[in-house]
């Protein structure tokens, strides 16, 4: 596509904005760069790329030290597949509701988008609640950050993920609130919801990897 060469046509700009076909007539208020792409979306993809390396290292480190704990309970002693499956399922469903929020916003339907954002944030908050319960349960079973290589690598990895979910819950809640109060520029709403959605889906895929590699594989071997 050569959108950057002919970005004067509003249809062309909307198309260049990552196939965001809903920006017709409103493209002027979204800050696009010389390529005709929204800066905010470009920045989010670049950020998520760096996050891949961040979480890749954390998960890799967990595996590097797997089975080398000299003290404390071992993964199989503390993990509970039942409880973790419920929270995993909730986070997966939150990715669906997030996609539906982005879709509703592209249809210029802020009320529906707001409702889906609220549901997504609630599912995310429940996930964080499960993690708080899990951590406190593990501590009760004698696994602390400083207990062993398992404790250190596990808490740092899952803790950073939980932190990301928490940030996402705050972000989505604020977005829903601002949409509800009508405080955001309607022309910018689709891209704002889309970018929040990219972040949220990323948090979900990190958990897809952690859940399979850290929890499930533990019980397969």
């Amino acid at each position: 596509m050569s959108a950057q060469l002919a970005a004067t046509d509003p249809h062309e700009v909307a198309d260049a904005a990552g196939h965001d076909h809903g920006d017709h007539g409103h493209h002027a208020v979204v800050e696009n760069n010389f390529m005709g792409l929204p800066n905010i979306k470009l920045a989010m993809w670049a950020f998520l790329g760096s996050e891949c390396m961040f979480f890749g290292s954390l998960i890799g480190t967990y595996f590097f030290y797997h089975g080398k704990a000299l003290a404390g309970p071992l993964p199989q002693d503390v993990f509970s597949i039942g409880i973790t499956s419920i929270s995993t399922f909730l986070l997966l469903m939150s990715s669906l509701t997030m996609a539906l929020a982005v879709d509703a916003m592209k249809q210029r339907n802020p009320a529906t988008a707001r409702n889906f954002l609220v549901i997504t944030a609630l599912l995310g908050a429940t996930f964080v609640g499960f993690q708080v319960y899990e951590f406190s349960h593990f501590v009760h079973l004698g696994l602390k950050l400083s207990t062993s290589l398992f404790g250190s690598t596990f808490y740092v990895m899952t803790g950073f993920h939980g932190g990301h979910v928490t940030v996402g819950v705050i972000w989505l809640s604020m977005l829903a609130l601002l949409i509800h109060k009508g405080k955001l520029n309607p022309a910018k709403l689709p891209i704002n919801v889309e970018v929040a959605g990219l972040y949220w889906h990323f948090v979900d895929i990190v958990w897809i990897v952690i859940f399979t590699f850290v929890y499930l594989l533990e019980f397969i071997q």
Binding site: H19, W45, G49, G56, L198, H201
Partner: peptide, 27 residues
């Protein structure tokens, strides 16, 4: 699908997939 990266602009795919490849190599 959910993040719509399939069929999106090449620059987005590049920005995400190349660090992902590095992450997989580290792993």
């Amino acid at each position: 699908e959910f993040m719509h990266l399939r069929g999106d602009r090449r620059i987005f795919q590049f920005l995400f997939l190349s660090p992902l490849a590095i992450a997989v190599i580290i792993f």
